[in-house]
Design a protein around this nucleic acid. Sequence first.
DNA 1: ATGGTCGCGCAGCGA
Length: 257
Amino acid sequence: MLIATWNVNSLGARMPRVEEWLEIWSPDVLCLQETKMSDAKFPALDFQRLGYDSVHHGEGRWNGVAILSRVGIDDPVAGFEDDDEPDVDARIIWATCGGVRVASVYVPNGRELGHDHYRYKLDWLARLRRNLEARYRPDEPLVVLGDWNVTPGDDDVWDPAAFEGSTHVSEPERKAIAALREWGLVDTLRQRYPDAGIYSYWDYRNGDFHKRRGMRIDYLLATPALAVASVADLVDRNARKGTKPSDHAPVLGEFDR
DNA sequence: ATGGTCGCGCAGCGA
């Protein structure tokens, strides 16, 4: 089972690249973030033509998450699986694909330390943890994947010193990700490559991609029940090249199941 | 050199 995640930075702008990419890789499941699209405009028929069922949770101009699957897509839930107030943004969608519970997540950026949006980011991650605790167990096959907007450690940033005092590297954010791991999630790529400088996002500016100045903020977090079957992890850097690329590359995990 | 690029949508914000 091949499961992938890709922050496409507008599906409207990226559809040619996404269709091309699906034909190259034929993943079983592809999670998308930042579709920047309403549900009404989501091109479900185009994905159907490529063999994928899909679910989408979008508002229009900002955010927006989706799951595409060619191994079934059951029990979809848009937003958190709790009875609290609905999230103000469309940032998480769930579905069961081929016997694996999948969540596609677009974690708030945070903007600046101390900003209201930074508090929202930390609250959002805590709410995700409560959702997992209330609804799932680490011995069930589940993967939460997407754009976390947090580097789990210093190996995940091209120059940690350059980001001192910024979001994406702060201790509270990293503790929130560590708390998810402590509940029972495995960062499969990092487990396979313990200290490699592997990135998934490069700013469009400054030629950062060509200078290899990136961050690893897109990843799969799988329960041990699923991670035990992990056989490969990779970032498709080729998708960050060429005409009208997203600023994120797709991240793939393969499981022997 | 203290910016630099995208996307959205038509100014300027968000990333």
